[in-house]
Design a binder for these strands. Structure first.
Length: 593
RNA sequence: GCCCCGGUAGCUCAGUCGGAUAGAGCACCAGAUUCCUAAUCUGGGGGUCCCAUGUUCGAAUCAUGGUCGGGGCGCCA
């Protein structure tokens, strides 16, 4: 990912700018700092007694400038220009420069929040790099399960974060609707269809056994699909597992289906099954607030000759060779463990060939930066796909892969067994029904993506303070409630007056809340740059805490008009920031709970 | 065997680019409501940051070697 620097935060920029200007007047230090990003030295302080921002630049310059860090800090402070936004600076500890911002800087930030509203924390849109964000891409062979829910939440949230950071983002779902698994799906539905017609055929071990297959069989249009007898289906088939090979058995059944139904007849069953499942997945995700700009069909890669196009590019660049009757891609030239087959001895192209073509097509469609969100079990796959892009002449770093670790559900402190066969908890739909979309979206992104997620159903369901999602939503609703109360008391909020009276906000909780609010743009940027929604989750939790603390400590609807207008100004800004943050997470911000 | 991820409080986890006294929630203990929603708040105890060595002004963070746990290593998709 290209630019990971340079933020939207006005406040941080103020401090960075001051330091940069000071340095410009100190040639010797500026020389030593030539390959240092000044902004990177400026960070929020952890402790309020250290001011609002601190720079460690003096310590980092100590070695190149060969001077004592505290002396360097003193020189820089001397060279700092006067600023209305900074009330005080000091040298602290081993050589930190602490910046205490003036109240007016915070008032300006509050005004910015209310003025910008929905767009507060968002950076201006830019034209490039164009990002293609691919996620979920679950095989259309059955309903989404709880693991896909994590991919969906994470992908949708990262997409929102990137957009907030100003990048053009295109969301895509790659539909694996080609190949053997589609035949297995088709044959599974066909057999359930026969079952429904009273034709007794044992169900293969290697078929898709879920109940949804029966549902599909019941609803599809079978006009023109041949009726057959059990004998016709079963005669001369090899043994199924456990006596025989279940894969070979399924293959034989597929071949039999194609013989008995004809390619068109079988196609009809298979395609309807696919459409039904794909529609179900799309509905499921839409209900979950997760939508895509394109659903990219793997079949279309073949029909548009995209695979041949990609292979031709490789061939022209000398990146294919023949061995043992197969066509190989020299992936080892690009750091992979072994070379990979793209066209098998039997002439069939491998899945890897499709994937090269798919990523080739992504670039050909004009996307500069590709982000794939994949399950951790796909990690071995990353090197070869990247190798393919590189071999076709695209930069290896144009493909970024975020690997998702697995999800385990817990109920009553015990791990819930998840298997389709056992019929226990399994699908995303069930999870959403049980805990609600908001809690699900929230918990799925509350952990780092490379951390296994233990999803505690009891906590996610609980409607109490145990549950961070409600805690945050409640803060938002509470602000709305205060304004309702205001109306009931026939009072009105004078926003302009509030802005003028912000100097009355002298309580420690008010200062804390203002500081937290001003951090929001930095948190959004950090979360976007690191593809790490959990930073935003934690921030919102902290912000809600600051608000609830304030709420409990002080009344907002006070008799003093000036103070009341100012306090309402502050909590109104809080409401905006919480709503914006929850919006990025795909969680609702209720007016009332 | 090789590759990827993780190991931080009793539990679940944050910890950004190496920075000041390592944090949060839950759980546990003790409190708060004549007042805008108690779906709230206040206070408290609780640490071998898996181990070792190294890098340096400074390491939970970086490097190397271990160790434990999860995952991956097809002319499958």
């Amino acid at each position: 990912m290209p630019p990971r620097k340079s933020g939207p935060s006005v406040m941080k920029h103020i401090v960075t700018q001051l330091v940069e200007n000071a340095l410009a007047g100190l040639p010797e230090l500026a020389e030593a700092a030539s390959d240092l990003s000044i902004e990177d030295t400026v960070e929020r302080t952890r402790d309020a007694s250290h001011g609002d921002f601190a720079s460690n630049i003096a310590m980092r310059l100590a070695k190149p400038a060969r001077k004592n860090p505290r002396d360097i800090a003193a020189s820089i402070i001397d060279a700092l220009a006067e600023s209305a936004d900074v009330s005080r600076t000091e040298i602290a500890g081993p050589g930190f420069i602490n910046f205490h911002l003036s109240p007016s800087a915070f008032y300006a930030e509050l005004a910015s929040i209310l003025q910008k509203g929905d767009s507060y924390g968002r950076q201006p849109e830019r034209d490039a790099p164009k990002i293609l964000l691919e996620f979920v891409s679950a095989n259309p062979t059955g309903p989404l399960h709880v693991g896909h829910g994590r991919h969906a939440s994470y992908g949708a949230t990262v997409g929102n974060l990137l957009e907030a950071a100003g990048y053009p983002v295109h969301r895509e779902y790659y539909v694996n609707d080609a190949g053997r698994q589609m035949d297995i799906l088709g044959v599974s539905v066909w057999l359930r269809l026969l079952e429904k017609q009273g034709i007794a055929v044992p169900f293969p071990q290697g078929g898709y056994r879920g109940d949804y297959i029966r549902d599909i069989a019941a609803e599809i249009n079978i006009d023109g699909v041949n009726t057959v007898s059990a004998d016709a289906v079963l005669s001369d088939l090899p043994a199924d597992a456990p006596d025989g090979d279940k894969e070979a058995y399924v293959e034989a059944l597929i071949a039999r289906a194609k013989t008995l139904l004809g390619d068109t007849g079988f196609d009809q069953v298979r395609q309807q099954a696919l459409d039904s499942i794909r529609d179900d997945i799309e509905d499921d995700l839409a209900e979950f607030g997760v939508t895509f700009d394109t659903w990219y069909s793997e079949q279309s890669l073949t029909t548009s000759n995209r695979i041949d196009d990609a292979l031709n590019v490789l061939k022209e660049r000398g990146m294919l060779y023949e061995k043992d009757g197969a066509t190989w891609f020299p992936a080892t030239d690009f750091g992979d463990e072994k070379d990979r087959v793209v066209v098998r001895e039997n002439g069939i192209k491998t899945y890897f060939a499709s994937d090269i073509a798919y990523h080739f097509d992504k670039r050909e469609r004009g996307f500069d930066h590709l982000i794939d969100i994949l399950g951790a079990d796909h990690h071995g796959y990353v090197t070869r796909v990247r190798a393919g892009l590189e071999a076709m002449g695209y930069g290896a770093d144009s493909l970024e892969v975020e690997l998702m670790q697995f999800v385990a559900l817990y109920r009553g402190g015990k791990k819930v067994q998840m298997s389709t066969r056992s019929g226990e908890f399994d699908t995303l739909r069930q999870l959403r029904a049980e805990v609600g979309n908001d809690a699900a979206r929230f918990y799925y992104v509350s952990r780092s993506n490379d951390q296994h997620l233990e999803f505690d159903l009891d906590v996610a369901k609980s409607q109490s303070s145990d549950n961070p999602v409600y805690y945050i939503q409640y803060a938002h609703a509470r602000v709305a409630s205060v304004f309702r109360q205001l109306g009931e008391k026939s009072l009105a909020w004078n926003s302009d007056n509030g802005q003028k009276q912000l100097g009355l906000l002298l309580e420690p909780q008010e200062k804390t809340l203002m500081t937290s609010l001003s951090r929001y743009p930095e948190v959004v940027e950090l979360s976007a740059n690191n593809r790490a929604p959990q930073h935003l989750v934690h921030y919102l939790r902290d912000l809600a805490n600051d608000f609830h603390t304030y709420y409990n400590a002080h009344a907002f609807i006070v008799d003093n008009d000036a103070l009341r207008d100012a306090r309402l100004y502050l909590i109104s800004a809080t409401q905006v920031v919480i709503a914006n943050g929850l919006g990025i997470l795909g969680v609702s911000a209720p007016e009332k709970m």
